[in-house]
């Protein structure tokens, strides 16, 4: 009886901490969102911001807040959520922080297809986005197939992914070298993540993708979490390992690819969100939702820093890239110290 009580209190405490972390991240996100609407190159008082959001015409604020800041903030949050959720799903599934879609070439697949579409096929708009999403899925399937040898091991998949990523990188460089200069600007949008020139209409595909793919991931969170015990134990606990993996891959790639199509590959957000969220959350349940929130915060904050806090304006991908690179080096150094196995 006392043991049951002990288990119950421990479980409730973990649930409380989890809610505290998620609640705290939500408040921070809301505050950040409000702040970026109010403060930019000029200050717009909260009352005016609310009036603009309610659809009133406020001279001097309607354009800045409604046309510039709101789309930017909305896309930052939605894309960040997508990157965070998708990245963490891969990292949990393969039990390795290096297994993020931006390291193993999936985001690069979307970029390469988009560059090819712009330069060689001469397409743009929704067609181009569809091509990028399909290419990301194709790369995911290819990496999965190449690392399949009587079951997929996480380490092999990561190494194959890094190789594929390098190949795609050189393909991008080759295509760009043949591109006419007027295509370069459009192509750059697919190479560095940026929310410059954001339009509110682009929030719709992100919302749909989050509802469909994000919903799928979150509904599978418990099965996904069981994969952390190893495939055998997960199967012994009644998880359909192959089906869970397939669903997670499709959902996570969908999230990443759609977000990449809207903002470009915002560097390292998918890679960083999971580990940061795990550090904050501790052993208190699935890291999936907290990782999504951290991803949103990273993009929102990164974009603000890139716009206003640095001597020149940088796109958000440059800021997150500068944050992510040292962590990647740290991870690789730590792995090497542990004896070379991933």
């Amino acid at each position: 009886m006392t043991a049951t009580l002990l288990i119950r209190t421990g479980r409730l405490r973990r649930a409380r901490r989890r809610m505290a972390v998620i609640g705290g991240a939500l408040i921070l996100l809301l505050a950040g969102f409000a702040l970026t609407l109010m403060q930019g190159q000029s200050f717009v008082p909260p009352g005016d911001v609310l009036r603009v959001l309610a659809g009133h015409d406020v001279p001097g604020a309607s354009f800045t807040v409604g046309q510039l800041r709101l789309p930017r903030a909305a896309l930052s949050v939605l894309a960040g959520l997508s990157f965070g959720l998708g990245g963490a799903a891969f990292q949990i599934m393969l039990r390795n922080p290096l297994a993020s879609p931006d390291i193993i070439g999936i985001s690069r697949g979307a970029s390469a297809a988009a560059v090819f579409g712009i330069v060689v096929l001469g397409i743009d708009g929704p067609m181009l986005s569809v091509l990028a999403v399909l290419a990301a899925l194709g790369v995911a399937v290819m990496i999965h197939g190449l690392s399949h040898r009587g079951g997929v091991s996480g380490t092999r998949l990561i190494l194959v992914g890094i190789g594929v990523s390098a190949m795609l990188e050189s393909f991008i460089a080759y295509t760009l070298s043949r591109a006419p200069s007027w295509d370069l600007i459009e192509a750059m949008r697919w190479l560095t993540g940026s929310v410059n020139g954001a339009q509110l209409s682009l929030a719709l595909p992100l919302l749909v993708s989050l509802a469909v793919f994000g919903g799928l991931l979150v509904s599978r969170a418990r099965d996904l979490e069981s994969l952390r015990l190893g495939d055998d134990t997960a199967a012994a606990l009644g998880t359909n390992v192959a089906r869970t993996r397939l669903l997670v891959i499709v959902a996570a790639v969908g999230l990443i690819a759609v977000a990449t199509a809207v903002t470009g590959p915002v560097a390292f957000v998918a890679f960083l969100a999971g580990p940061i969220a795990a550090r904050i959350l501790g052993p208190n349940g699935s890291v999936l939702i907290p990782a999504g929130l951290v991803g949103a915060l990273l993009v929102l904050a990164g974009d603000y820093v890139g716009q206003f806090l640095l001597p020149t304006r940088f796109p958000v991908g440059v800021v997150t890239g500068a944050l992510g690179a040292p962590y990647l080096i740290y991870l690789i150094v730590r792995v090497n110290r542990a004896g070379g196995s991933l």
Partner: peptide, 13 residues
């Protein structure tokens, strides 16, 4: 089933 060498996620209680 208890597999041969099960892996525990880092830090799990």
């Amino acid at each position: 089933l208890l597999p041969q060498s099960p892996t525990a996620p880092e830090g799990i209680t």
